[in-house]
């Protein structure tokens, strides 16, 4: 028996070393796994922080920007200028809406749509620096479902060409708005409270919100291309409720 063991001595050592190699390979796999996933949450947190800050800054910028009070002139040439937020509040005071036209339309030549026109273009210019992101901007009364302003921008990729589509909408409630963006997991949003005055009811509290998401999300393709077959009746109803009209200048 002793002699047999002596004969197999080298093979036992070989088996031990192969076990050792297996353990090393398992450890290496674990290390690779750690390396690949390390920082995913930090990355996500940094992205969240950055885009949240971007939307926050945009909201601040929207209201502190000056606009010309003469719709035929640029701000450099206009004799009178005012903060955009002041202009929006003055506009709202008279008829409890921003602009004279319907919420989902805009007449750039009408002086009564001056604040609405400037709001649209201020948001458009602020978000132009992030061309690969789509967004929704709206102002909604806090007490009810009524939207005071609603705009939507979507990038449309067709035949290797990028087209930026702008919509003005009149949703009946926040639900269809949520449905539009619910499919994406990367969504960044900021809100700010506002107070508008009216002649009849006094103060109206409202919330303005800017929500952005990467254009690469497939959420809006169906809406854009009109492939409604894949949507349920409820979803079609929700799209109808957005009452969007494309705005082209």
């Amino acid at each position: 028996m002793k002699l047999k063991l002596k004969n197999y001595k080298g093979q036992a050592a070989m088996t031990d070393s192969l076990f050792f190699l297996t353990i090393i390979v398992a450890l290496c796999v674990l290390l690779f796994q750690f390396s690949a996933t390390y920082g995913e949450r930090v990355d996500l947190a940094i992205n969240n922080l950055y885009f949240k800050e971007y939307t926050n800054s945009s909201l601040k910028t929207i209201y502190y920007t000056d606009i010309p009070l003469d719709n035929t002139k640029d701000i450099e040439d206009s004799l009178e200028t005012d903060y955009l937020i002041t202009s929006l509040k003055s506009d709202y005071l008279s008829d409890e809406k921003i602009g004279y036209s319907d919420i989902n339309s805009l007449n750039k030549d009408d002086v009564k749509d001056l604040s609405k026109y400037n709001l649209f273009h201020t948001i458009k210019s602020l978000m132009y620096a992030l061309p690969n992101y789509d967004y929704i901007y709206y102002i909604q009364e806090s007490s009810g479902q009524k939207f005071i302003y609603f705009m939507l921008k979507i990038n449309n990729f067709e035949d290797n060409e990028l087209e930026q589509l702008y919509y003005l909408c009149e949703p009946t409630s926040i639900n269809p708005v949520r449905n539009v963006v619910q499919r994406t997991n990367k969504i960044y949003s900021s809100s700010s409270p506002q107070i508008y005055q009216t002649k009849d009811t006094g103060e109206v509290r409202a919330t303005s919100n800017l929500t952005i998401w990467p254009s690469t999300s497939s959420i809006n393709k169906e809406y854009l291309e009109g492939r409604l077959d894949s949507l349920t009746d409820n979803e079609i109803e929700n799209i109808t409720n957005l009452k969007c009209k494309e705005y082209i200048e």
């Binding site: 070989m14 050792f20 290496c28 690779f32």
Partner: peptide, 23 residues
């Protein structure tokens, strides 16, 4: 007698430290 078993051990150590350094 242990020489053949030293090869996988040496290989294992090289692989482990390379991966560790990379990570």
């Amino acid at each position: 007698d242990d020489l053949p078993s030293l090869i996988p051990i040496f290989l294992g150590l090289v692989v482990f430290f390379s991966v560790f350094l990379g990570v």
